[in-house]
Structures are given as C-alpha cells and as structure tokens.
C-alpha cells in the first residue's frame, strides 16, 4: 500500500494554516479481526514532525486513539513559497516524508 500524505498550506497575514492528511490504518492493538477472532496488532503513527524550511514548527506524539487516515491542522508564522515538510514514523518502524510549498 502506498503511503500517501497530502499537504495543504496557505499563508494569510503572516500566518500559515497547514492541513495534513496521512494514509495510515491507526490500529490501536485492541481490535479483533472479525473472521479470525485474533487481535489486530497495534500499528499507529507515533510521531509527526512539521518543518518550515529546516525549522521545526510542530512535533506531535500520537497513539492509536487518532482516527484512521489521520488528519492534522496547525498554524505557524511563515511566508508564501516556503517549504513545509511533514515526516512521520509509526510504532512498527514505518515512515514517510512529504513536502509542499506554502501558497
């Protein structure tokens, strides 16, 4: 499965509103497989880093309580044309990184 991340970042009056959508199952480890009755192993993004250029603007810690295909929005001081990079790692060592230009 492709690990897709979508980023929208728009600047207005010096403030960038960033919206991020990540493709991830976000399994808590508590759910059971309906067919086998076995527990589905925990599999969730546990850390997300947002960088404007090379400066970290936000660091998020998550557990399985964040919904499947997670969404996150935040605001920071920034300018049009800057790069916003979102990187995440999950509890099984999976990771992804994606950049987008602030519009």
């Amino acid at each position: 499965m492709a690990k897709k991340t979508k980023i929208r970042a728009k600047e207005k009056d010096g403030i960038v509103i960033a919206k991020v959508l990540m493709s991830h199952p976000m399994e808590t480890g508590l759910r059971k497989d309906k067919k086998t009755g076995k527990k589905i192993p925990a599999h969730f993004i546990q850390e997300v880093i947002a960088k404007a250029g090379d400066k970290t603007v936000l660091e998020a810690f998550w557990a399985g309580g964040v919904s499947k295909n997670p969404y996150m929005s935040f605001k920071y001081k920034g300018a049009k044309g800057e790069m916003l990079t979102i990187s995440w790692i999950d509890n099984q060592g999976g990771s992804a990184s994606k950049s987008a230009k602030v519009k």
Binding site: T28, L58, E59, A63, G65, S67, K75, Y76
Partner: peptide, 27 residues
C-alpha cells in the same frame, strides 16, 4: 485526553513557536 477511552492520552502537540491551535480527528 479522553477520559472514557481505554488509554485516555490521545495526542500531544509540542508547539515549537507555532500558534495556539491544533485540529485533528480522534476515536
């Protein structure tokens, strides 16, 4: 934090100078 969830801590955002705002979707 959702007190009624089996593990109440859902998410924690370290702001690093960003504005006092976060939005997400939780279980």
């Amino acid at each position: 934090v959702v007190s009624g969830n089996p593990t109440p801590m859902i998410a924690s955002f370290n702001m690093h100078g960003s504005e006092g705002f976060v939005s997400t979707r939780i279980k």
